[in-house]
């Protein structure tokens, strides 16, 4: 009985470790910080005409190889999307973060090291320009339940 208990304890520790390493996604990171994750189930990656194409059991997507920085296994899909230049809710230019959101929405800006750089509560509905004087780098903006990556050049 004692031997069985010890065996269970050892094997449980092994399984906890194994379970913690269930890397079910591959995340593709572009040079501008954009990330896209896909499930590994049925995943097949091919290269042609300067493009990477990834297809799995659920979806397909392509991206230019020249824009790719790295890819890596992940336990969960990335929740970070890049700031689109035509994003209606968020943009940054000349030290001003332009945010379109309801009054009372909290806008939080974090540095790449996780440090809170700015937190602002929307004073009114619609678009508002928030002064954001920061150095070049990558920042994460949390607002309205979404997380967005911002590259300041």
């Amino acid at each position: 009985m004692k031997r069985l208990f010890i065996l269970m304890a050892v094997l449980s520790a092994v399984c906890v470790q194994a379970g913690a390493q269930s890397l079910d996604y591959i995340t593709f990171r572009s040079a501008d910080g954009t990330e896209r994750s896909v499930s590994i189930d049925g995943l097949r990656i091919t290269f042609a005409d300067g493009q990477l194409s990834a297809t799995n059991n659920e979806e397909s997507f392509s991206t230019p190889l020249s824009a790719l920085s790295t890819m890596f296994f992940a336990e969960a899909p990335t929740a970070i999307r890049a700031v689109a230049t035509a994003d209606a809710h968020l943009s940054y230019s000349n030290g001003l973060l332009s945010v379109s959101a309801p009054q009372g929405e909290i806008v939080s800006v974090y540095g790449a090291d996780g440090r809170l750089v700015l937190q602002h509560v929307k004073q009114a509905d619609g678009e508002e320009c928030i002064p954001l004087s920061v150095l070049r780098g990558v920042y994460v903006i949390k607002m309205n339940g979404e997380t967005t990556k911002l590259m300041v050049r």
């Binding site: 995943l43 990656i45 091919t46 190889l65």
Partner: peptide
């Protein structure tokens, strides 16, 4: 990190350097 370099023409994984145009496919 499985790194793409040289304009995406080279892929390096665990010290294995692959010419991307020599790769037929990558599966998991």
């Amino acid at each position: 990190d499985m790194a793409y370099s040289d304009g995406g023409t080279v892929l390096t994984i665990m010290n294995n350097v692959f010419a991307v145009n020599a790769i037929d496919s990558i599966t998991v």
